[in-house]
Nucleic acid binder design. Structure first.
Lengths: 352, 352
DNA sequence: CTGAAAGCGCTTACAG
DNA sequence: CTGAAAGCGCTTACAG
């Protein structure tokens, strides 16, 4: 396993493996004519230093442009005051607010945030998570790409506070913060049913992804409660790239058995379905999982099952710092409610 | 200045200031019955270890669940293989792709990314940047919130490779990667002029923000080239919150001297203006700076001057690693072109 | 092929 | 109030 240190470190120029000749506390001590510990006291604002001594030390600090090396401090103190966040893709609009929320909580606890994207690749998730552990982050927030997290067991045992978000951990018992994908999807589909639809399609992400499977389950539950037998051609699961989703949508909308409504499993699916429906004159109803910017500006506005990404991040980060601050806690599963937002597309009546 | 270490570190439980009793190379060495240096060789894949010795060390590593403490390694090597990114707000859709691009370049160079949001607060920008320097990041990518970066001069001199993005550094000479805000805005306004508009409004961000000032300058240049004298009531600069922008737009659209077209200074302004124009029946033309998702799905589609956020991030990060890898480079200003994307809203003819 | 000693820049524990 | 010594967990430089 590569920790990522080598590439940069090994191409470094010979001379500056001393942080570019930065002054150290020793240099400050020499210049101020005091002991090392006295400098440490001043730098850290500890009591027990004469005003005069403090002034002399401060002058030396200013003259040398000294800045404490937290990297060394960390080694001695045993806590790095940093946490890691492994997510799928920082460029995805769902993860931006989530990441920002984690950052805010970290900041409130005096910690910095190191984050990385797994690109939905379990191998990369593991590589990243373990690299962060090698850096000795105090805690880890993980949005799983893979479904087996036993590789983190030794780390968690060794004290790395770990919380999973958006999807549960695989094969280990750990904290997890989720949206209620099942309930949200069931409510969204029930909404379509309430508006008279019977032939309702479901287009979702790959079923190996937990949220996708849960949303499918919600769809099935709502349909079953309404006494409707789902036809295979109404369901399409797979990658969420525009090409596949478009084909899936067009197939559902064609022929005599065409669906009159579609439930879209996540924001990326929704966006593509909106494009397809626009070409079909919007006579098909649509409810999507995940809210997105401008959903209200489209015509019709897009009815969605909204989840609160920031709240997911905040909850996870707070759980993490509870662990870090306090007594050991039993792993817990926290589920956040979703919210149906009606804007028009979900209230289109069945065609024909 | 607070480095953020204290809060977490000081609330730590007494016992585990040794990283939760993790095994060290010393423990591995003892168990394998070899010297410390031999363990180091095996862990780092260095040559000169018998197959048999290596096997024994590896067994000890596995048995103890040893993972090298990169935090200690870093202290000795002098390079942390991490870079910092200070941006405005990770939740802003403009910065997600930028951040992701920086991360990818960092990853290719074996470095991790620590990022933080300044929330457009110069004080917070400085606090964050200096905290990152205290952690001894190898380099810093900064999207400036403030306009005075002299506080970074000692850090840069000490060897922290620093590149500014999106807005130039203030009062220091440093690398900067920008979009061509002036040219982009001029082109966008020229596009409206070419479609017959004379009374064109400009709604932008606060003029103290460099990009806002440059875009205003581009607007003025295009109008001047067309021989049009700009009236004061056509320009509105200030915060980009929906409330202010809405009022500004409504004022410009009211009365006998109403504008027939609006140039919006950034994505947040554009979105609000779209809402206002929707209420006005879309008889006013609009060109916005920054592209955004679904701009093509609105009716009419929104014509924009697009900048490539990912390319900004990639360029900046590559510049940073060039500095880190090689000889000293003179500070450089890199300007990336923008691209006009016509979708309908910018081609609406003048009303009346 | 292998390892003991010194040191990275701090903090801790202790003594004056 | 002040500081010398030891140590955090590694790597470097060197010797066998």
């Amino acid at each position: 396993m590569t920790t990522g240190l080598d590439t940069v470190a090994e191409t470094t120029r010979k001379a500056d493996n001393r942080y570019g000749n930065r002054p150290t506390m020793k240099d400050v001590a020499a210049r101020a004519g005091v002991g090392l510990k006295t400098v440490s006291r001043v730098v850290n604002g500890e009591p027990g230093v004469t005003a005069d001594t403090e002034r002399r030390v401060q002058e030396a600090i200013d003259a040398l442009n000294f800045r404490r090396n937290d990297s060394a401090r960390v080694l001695r103190k045993g806590r790095t005051a940093s946490i890691g966040l492994v997510l799928e893709d920082l460029a995805d609009p769902f993860y931006g607010p989530l990441s920002r929320a984690v950052e805010e909580v970290a900041r409130a606890h005096g910690a910095l945030l190191i984050n990385g994207s797994s690109a939905e690749d379990p191998g990369r998730e593991q590589e990243l998570a373990l690299a962060l552990c090698a850096r000795r982050v105090d805690g880890l927030v993980v949005i799983p790409a893979g479904d087996d997290h036993r590789y983190l067991e030794p780390e968690i045992k060794a004290g790395v506070a770990t919380v999973f978000v958006d999807r549960p951990a695989g094969r280990i018992n750990a904290d997890v913060v989720l949206s209620d994908s099942f309930g949200g999807a069931r409510d969204g589909v029930a909404h379509l049913l309430a508006h008279g639809h019977r032939r309702i399609g479901f287009i979702g992400d790959q079923p190996r992804i937990h949220t996708a499977a849960e949303r499918l389950r919600g769809y099935r539950a709502a349909m079953e409660e309404a006494g409707i037998t789902i036809e295979d051609s109404w369901m399409s699961l797979g990658a969420t790239d525009p090409h596949r989703v478009r084909r899936a949508a067009e197939e559902m909308l064609a022929g005599p058995d065409a669906v009159t409504a579609v439930f879209a499993g996540n924001n990326r699916v929704t966006v593509t379905v909106v494009r397809v429906l626009a070409e079909h004159g919007h006579r098909v109803a649509l409810v999507g999982f995940d809210d997105f910017e401008l959903a209200d500006l489209l015509r019709p506005g897009v009815t969605v099952v909204a989840q609160d990404a920031a709240q997911l991040g905040r909850t996870a980060a707070e759980r993490l710092f509870s662990r870090l601050d306090g007594a050991p806690l039993a792993p817990q599963r926290i589920e956040l409610p979703t919210r149906l937002i009606t804007r028009g597309s979900g209230e289109v009546p069945p065609a024909g």
